[in-house]
Every structure is written in structure tokens, then in C-alpha cells.
Design a binder for these strands. Structure first.
Length: 490
RNA sequence: GGAGCUAUCGUCUAACGGUUAGGACAGCGCCCUUUCAAGGCGCCAGUACGGGUUCGAGUCCCGUUAGCUCUACCA
């Protein structure tokens, strides 16, 4: 039990849920599932100014939609508002724990009160800049100028800094990146608790609370974004100072936009909500994200055909391994998502799609018979990349065309076409079979090709030349609606 | 500026130091076809650069270049 796997996703509620965050969470989730471990969601809201309740809700909803359900974390349905034994899972509610740990460090001389004001630090930073050196508190040019050995008590306002090692290297053994060495001299004594009034301990900073929480929640594998690599050498000595064993670190590479910069709104969709609204399936998002910087190997083999690219969650979980994750970043290509989404839609049951389509459809959709919906879904699912496109391709069912393109009318609705349309409106057997026979007879009588009649009907009925196969299009519209729409052409 | 990371087709990637450098998406062409798709077949396209090590380097080492991350009392 002591060796059981626990991973976590620890976003800060300062904005939307970014697709890059979802990918990081996905890897942590896959790893936990693979090892029958636990996956924790923890809200890192120690930035009081930027964190909001609304953003927490967005994160929870986004995670649920993505299918990344957490074993421990916030849960309004549970007593106290969270699920799990190490709660609460919002850092703002865990201040007592942090402050107790800070007191310990203070007593042991592993942390110290710092009375340097923002102004003083600003000044020293500028001085360093002028000398062409990076500013590091109590290192380099600043060595000896800080409060490290002043033994200040809490009788005056102060922040609290962690006394970092002064020599040697800090070594990070990363499950993805390998061993990385950081010279201690490139780090400095960083702030673990913000400025506070006399007698108090300020709000702890991210790098501090993360360590305390990861230990308290028994996180065995810290799987997080690449952008945290530089934080890790700060955190490692803290684990040691607190007397905690080190978890295994795994830093997953970033997801880039087409211009090789961090993926953002500029590249189109970046938040998980946007992907949802675009009509992508959660499974498609998971699969696409999973295959960035990682290639699943099924039975030791990578995909060798298009079909083999489409994997189930079970296959992803089964083949997931941190060692196989690349250390280089990758560019997110939405075309691949479209393709995977289309494949998954094609593979989906009508039952599933009928329901998945609900949010994209007008109210009239909900009133339709099941058999009608089934027909609508089955004749559009092979020709749509997204749920939204599916919904769009069924628009003609509720929206009669108002304006017609003259060129289309001239090409597809000549007098001879119209006389055939006249016949269509007089058909009486509107079963699938009867309709087929009826159309065939019209084609014979009018010496027409199906192609011509189909396009004439499309233009007359939908205003365009694109629709599901013509028999299905007619069945979806129904006899009465067709008569109504054909009226102006016959 | 400093610290760190990274480098195979446009993109995602595969390749015990030995392959005509493989696959997928995108693009292009042909076939199929009732429009659009789907499907089938095919084409285009890559080891950033320079040095080593080696019988042999995409793969190991060193440098160069480029990109990214971090460099906050943000997370």
C-alpha cells in the first residue's frame, strides 16, 4: 500500500482550462489508471487576486467533460465540499497546515524572516541589471546584503525566505527528461511566505504549498508541465528540509501552436470549452492529446495504418509509460483532431450520436421521433467531422431556403427538371421502398439520370447542391414539407 | 544577460550503431460515385549546420545555429 501510485493535477483557477493543462492532466490520469492508483484534482488558489470561484467551476466542468474524473478533489456533493481523506483540496483552505510547517522551518533555522522591502529589492535588482548580472537574493553581487543571518524576529513586518544550499549542484532525476543538474549558485533564497504584519505568517507561495500538499496527499509521481522544471531545484531542498522523501518527478513537454509558441487563443481554440463547443468528442480530444510527445505501443508495435491510429482509452491506459514520453515539445495540429473526431463519429452508434447531438440542435429536434432521428444521424455520420458539422448538415430539415442562387437555378431547375419535380410532389408511397420505386419510374418516364433529378431536388428543397443522399433527404423532409417547398417550382 | 530543455517530411511520429529512413494527418493526382463525404490506389516531402568516434552515425561525443521554458512576495 505504501508504494501505491498517486498522481495529481493542480491547476490554478486564474483563467480558462487550457488544452495544454488537459494534456498534462491526461498523462497523470493515464498513469494513475495504468497502475490502479489514485488521481487527485487540487485547486492551487494561493494567488488571491486572480483566483475566482467561476474559474474553479470552469476547471471542474472542463475536467468532467474531458472524462478525467478524479478520485479525490473538490466535490460539492460530499460533506465539506470535497471527496477524499486529505482534503480540503483547495489551497486557500489549507493555510493552517502551511503555517505550521513554516513555523517549524523557522525554528530549525531552515527559513528566516526577511525585512527587505519591495523598494529595496527593486533597487538591488536594478543595480544587478546595470552590472549585467542576474539578480539573485543573497547570491552573487547581492551576497551578504540580505537578511539570511540577521536572525530577525516577527516584531516588524516581514516575508519569509527559505535558506537554500550555498554550494554544489541540485540534481533532478526526471522520469521523462533524465537527470538534470542545477548549480546551486544559479538559485537563491526564495520567498515561501508573503509579506505580513508583525506576529504573523504571510500567505505561502506556490512553490511552498505545492511541496507540503504533494507530501500530505501522498503524491508518488509529480507529473506536471515542462514549465515547472525550473521550479523543481527550489523544491527539492524543501522536501529535504521538511524531512520528506522525494516523489518521482515527470515533466511533460509543452504543446505549441503552429508558430512554435505556446498554444493560445491566437492559434484558434485553446480552452477545453471551445473544443467542446466546436463539436469534438471528449475521446477524440483525449486520443489526440495523448499522442503528442507519446506514441502508444500496442503489443510492442506502433500504429502502422490509419486504422491502428484509432485507439480506445483502455488501449491508451494499458500501453502508457512515462519512459516512452518524449522530452521534446510538439505542435498541436487541429487537422489531426478533426480526422480522429470524424473517425470516432463514424464508429459511434446511432444511439450515442442522437444524444450527443442534443446541445447542437434546435428545439424541434427534441420533438422528433426516434426513428427519424436515427435516420438523420445515420445518413450524416459518415460525412461530418464534428457534431456541429452534423447539426449544420441537417439544418435544411428545419430551415426552408429563402433565397436561391440564380446560377444554380438556371443549371438545375430548367423546365424539364421542373416537370419531374411536379411528378415527385404527386408521389403517394413515402416508405423508403416506395419512394425508391417512385423515383425510378420518374427517371424512366423523363429520360433523366438520377444525378440530374437529385441535384434538381437538392436545389429546390435545400437551396444548395449538398445534402445527404437524396432518398434520405426526401424521407427526412417528409411528404408535406416537400410539397410545400416544391410549390414555387411547379 | 543567466540557468535549463529541445532539434527526423509542412505537422505528429517510427527506426538493438547496419532499413531503398517506415507510418499517420495535411496537400496533390487517379478510381469509385447521386451532391458532399467515406473508401481504394498512387504521388510529393525529412535526419538543422560543422567537426569528431567508428568498418559503418538520424542514432554516441564536442561545437555552432535556431526555438522554447524559467529567471516574481504568479502559478
Amino acid at each position: 500500500m505504501s508504494s501505491s501510485v498517486v498522481t495529481r493535477f493542480a491547476p490554478s483557477p486564474t483563467g480558462m482550462l487550457h488544452i495544454g493543462g488537459v494534456r498534462t492532466a491526461l498523462f497523470a490520469w493515464l498513469f494513475a489508471k495504468k497502475h490502479s492508483g489514485k488521481f487527485i484534482l487540487r485547486i492551487e488558489d494561493t494567488d488571491l487576486d486572480r483566483s475566482t470561484e467561476e474559474n474553479i467551476r470552469i476547471i471542474e466542468e472542463g475536467m468532467r467533460w474531458s472524462g478525467l474524473l478524479w478520485d479525490e478533489g473538490p466535490d460539492p456533493d460530499c460533506p465539506g465540499g470535497w471527496l477524499g481523506e486529505q482534503g480540503p483540496y483547495r489551497q486557500i483552505l489549507r493555510m493552517d497546515l502551511y503555517k505550521a510547517k513554516i513555523s517549524e522551518l523557522l525554528q530549525q533555522g531552515k527559513a528566516y524572516r526577511c525585512r527587505c522591502t519591495k523598494e529595496s529589492l527593486e533597487h538591488r535588482r536594478k543595480e544587478s541589471d546595470r552590472a549585467g548580472k542576474p539578480f539573485q537574493y543573497n547570491r552573487g553581487l547581492d551576497f551578504g546584503q540580505g537578511c539570511r543571518d540577521r536572525q530577525y524576529d516577527d516584531s516588524a513586518p516581514s516575508s519569509i525566505r527559505f535558506a537554500m544550499p550555498l554550494g554544489g549542484d541540485i540534481i533532478l532525476r526526471d522520469a521523462i527528461k533524465g537527470t538534470i543538474q542545477f548549480p546551486s549558485e544559479s538559485l537563491d533564497d526564495w520567498i515561501i511566505a508573503r509579506w505580513s504584519d508583525p506576529g504573523e505568517i504571510g500567505v505561502p507561495t506556490y512553490n511552498f504549498s505545492v511541496v507540503v500538499d504533494d507530501v500530505a496527499m501522498r503524491v508518488s509521481h509529480v507529473i506536471r508541465g515542462d514549465d515547472h522544471v525550473a521550479n523543481t531545484p527550489k523544491q527539492i531542498p524543501l522536501f529535504e528540509a521538511l524531512g520528506y522523501p522525494l516523489p518521482i518527478f515527470a515533466h511533460v513537454p509543452m504543446i505549441l501552436g503552429k508558430d512554435k509558441h505556446k498554444l493560445s487563443k491566437r492559434h484558434g481554440a485553446a480552452s477545453i470549452t471551445e473544443f467542446k463547443d466546436l463539436g469534438f468528442l471528449p475521446q477524440a480530444v483525449r486520443l489526440t492529446l495523448a499522442k503528442l510527445s507519446w506514441t502508444p505501443k500496442i503489443d510492442g508495435r506502433v500504429a502502422e495504418s490509419a486504422e491502428e491510429e484509432i485507439l480506445s482509452d483502455a488501449q491508451l491506459i494499458q500501453s502508457f509509460s512515462l519512459e516512452d514520453v518524449q522530452s521534446s515539445p510538439s505542435v498541436f495540429d487541429i487537422d489531426k483532431l478533426y480526422w480522429i473526431n470524424q473517425k470516432l463519429i463514424m464508429n459511434s452508434t446511432n444511439e450515442f450520436l442522437m444524444q450527443a447531438l442534443d446541445p447542437f440542435m434546435p428545439p424541434l429536434w427534441l420533438q422528433r421521433e426516434k426513428s427519424w432521428k436515427e435516420l438523420a444521424v445515420s445518413c450524416t455520420k459518415e460525412r461530418s467531422r464534428t457534431l456541429k458539422e452534423m447539426a449544420d448538415s441537417l439544418r435544411f430539415c428545419w430551415e426552408a431556403p429563402q433565397v436561391f442562387d440564380e446560377a444554380l437555378v438556371a443549371k438545375h431547375l430548367s423546365q424539364s427538371h421542373r416537370s419531374a419535380l411536379q411528378r415527385v410532389s404527386t408521389l403517394t408511397d413515402w416508405t423508403a421502398e416506395g419512394l425508391r420505386k417512385g423515383l425510378d419510374q420518374i427517371l424512366l418516364d423523363h429520360h433523366m439520370k438520377l444525378k440530374d433529378l437529385a441535384q434538381a431536388l437538392r436545389v429546390a428543397l435545400t437551396g444548395g447542391t449538398i445534402s445527404p443522399p437524396i432518398h434520405e433527404t426526401l424521407l427526412l423532409l417528409g411528404q408535406e414539407e416537400i410539397k410545400r417547398r416544391l410549390l414555387r417550382w411547379i
